[in-house]
Every structure is written in C-alpha cells, then in structure tokens.
C-alpha cells in the first residue's frame, strides 16, 4: 500500500509548507515569526467559528469552497510523490489532474462572483486571466516530461526519471523545473504574482476572492490552498530530486526534505522579490511557457 503514502503525506504535511514559508519570511525579515504549526491552528480555529454570509449570496457561495477542497483532495489520488507512485495511475491521468485543478478554480471564482462585490469580481477577473495562460503552460511542461519518458501518466513519468534518463535529459529537466517553479508561484498566488499577506484589496488576487468567506468555509479554503501548493510543489520536487532507488524510506525522506527546501525557497523568493505590476504577470507566465517550449524542442529529436 505504498501508493497511499503520497496522499496521506499531502493531507498531513500540506499546511506545514505554508508554515515553513511564513517562518522563512519572518526570519529573513528579522522577526521570530509564528510557530511552524500555526496553519493547523488556523484551520482548527476557523472550523469552530460561526459564519457570516453576504446578503446577496446564494447556495453557490456555500458550495464553492467545498467543491474546491474536494477536487484538490481527489487530485491527490493521481499525483505521485517523486518515485513513490500515486494510488491510481492510468494513461491520461495528467489530463484529469488539470481538469480537477480547473474545477476547483472555477468553483472558487463563481463563489467570489456570488457576493456581488466589485472587489471579489476584480480578484476573480485576475484569477481567470492568469489561469487561462497558466493552463497551456502546464500542458507544455507535462508534454515535455511525457516525451522524455515516453509515457503520459504521471506515476510512470516520475518513476521514469532514473539517474541515467535524468542526466541525459538534464537541460530539459532544468528548463521544465523552472517552468514548474513559476507555475507553483502563479497558481498559488505567491509573490511575485500576488501577495498573500497584503490586505489592500486592489492589489490582491486570491485573497480578495475569498474575502467574504468565514467560519468552516474559510477553513476549507485555507486547507485547499495548502493542498494546491503541495500538489504543484510535488510535481516540481519530484522532478528535481532524482532518487529512484526503489527504497521506500530513502525516496520518501528525500522528497519530504525536498518539499521543505522548496518551501524555504518560496519564502526566500517572497522575501527578496517585489510583486510584479499586474501587467507584467502575463509576460512572466509567457516566459515560463517559453522555457518549456525550448525544452520540448531540445528533446524533440
């Protein structure tokens, strides 16, 4: 049952990633920062709270966070954890992954529009804009990996990156990894795309979309955001950490360490970079797409 390691790890450790990122940012800024487990306390606290709904909201507003969380949790069934396969793998599972990510986003966007508030409309508008560009980029990156390994199912792709394949395709791997890093930042609304900590509505994307959610639904949103961070992150780390020893413990430990390093790296990026102007973000995503396109052409022949 080693297949279930990946979703279980994700369910347990995903909020920890957020904790590490926040701690890193605090340390760089010279503060002590919240405890690493603070995101867990936050989720638990919101679960206990009551709810305030906007006057014009309908059932869609209540359903949105639930669908978002469910689609991301279901996606865990097909996301491999490095060489450790996912519980389910089948040709074309990466299409299902993209579909589930899109479903979660669509639900969040509609819930935001249900408030009738112009702030949330603004956030939703930006979200769909960047997502429309990020989706083909994700497919470019996945297509490159598929071509390298000759398979189009996530688990065989990631298990296919043995040391020899990895070294042989190193340039492409580096380029795709850079694409995936950018996608991780874009899809999870981190700096330099979006600032998850600011509360100035005009500059936010994700935070402003979920501004009017509260109580258990806010808990779902926070937890789902951590899962999304985990899913895209494990695609990246699985590519960069080329341990395919077959040893369960070694690979698992390497991947967990890799995820921690990724979280620290995101924290470092957030501490050292400024948010881009919104108008620059599409160019940022286009750059990511270019990297993967170049990688695809390199390994084409």
């Amino acid at each position: 049952m080693s297949g279930f390691v990946s979703p279980v790890c994700a369910l347990i450790f995903a909020p920890l990633l957020v904790g590490i990122i926040n701690r890193t940012k605090a340390v760089v800024a010279g503060r002590r920062g919240p405890p690493l487990v603070q995101p867990y306390w936050d989720v638990a606290k919101y679960l206990q709270r009551g709810v305030v709904y906007g006057e014009v909201t309908s059932w869609l507003f209540r359903l949105g966070p639930v669908v978002n969380l469910a689609s991301l949790a279901a996606a865990l069934l097909i996301v491999p954890f490095g060489g450790l396969g996912a519980p389910l793998n089948f040709s074309g599972d990466l299409i299902v992954l993209a579909g589930l990510l899109a479903l979660g986003r669509f639900a969040t966007v509609l819930a935001a529009l249900d408030t009738g508030s112009s702030f949330e409309g603004m956030g939703a508008s930006r979200e769909v804009h960047f997502a429309a560009l990020a989706e083909p980029t994700l497919f470019l990156a996945l297509a490159t990996l598929a071509r390298v390994t000759g398979s189009f199912s996530l688990t065989p792709i990631y298990q296919g990156f043995t040391a020899t394949v990895w070294v042989h395709a190193l340039p492409a791997v580096v380029l795709v990894a850079m694409t995936l890093l950018i996608l991780e930042l874009v899809e999870n609304n981190r700096i330099p795309v979006d600032d998850p900590t600011t509360h100035l509505e005009l500059t936010m994307i994700h935070e402003v979309m979920v501004l009017d959610h509260s109580g258990p639904e806010l808990a779902f949103i926070h937890y789902a955001a951590a899962l999304r961070l985990w899913i895209l992150g494990s695609l990246l780390v699985g590519l960069v950490v080329p341990f395919r020893s077959g040893s369960f413990w070694l690979e698992g430990t390497a991947m967990l360490l890799g995820m921690a390093v990724l979280a620290v790296a995101i924290g470092a990026i957030e501490s050292t970079m400024a948010r881009y102007q919104l108008i620059r973000v599409p160019q940022f995503i286009l750059g990511a797409a270019t990297l993967s396109a170049v990688a695809f052409i390199i390994i084409l022949v």
């Binding site: 190193l170 340039p171 580096v174 170049v294 990688a295």
Partner: peptide
Amino acid sequence: LPFLGIIQALGLLTSF
C-alpha cells in the same frame, strides 16, 4: 554530451 547539452540550454536561455 551532458556538458554540451547544458551549454546549449543555457545558450538558448540567454538568447531568449
């Protein structure tokens, strides 16, 4: 070959 591959990738990157 791996070295040349990396140089190629980086060279393409600088061009882009």
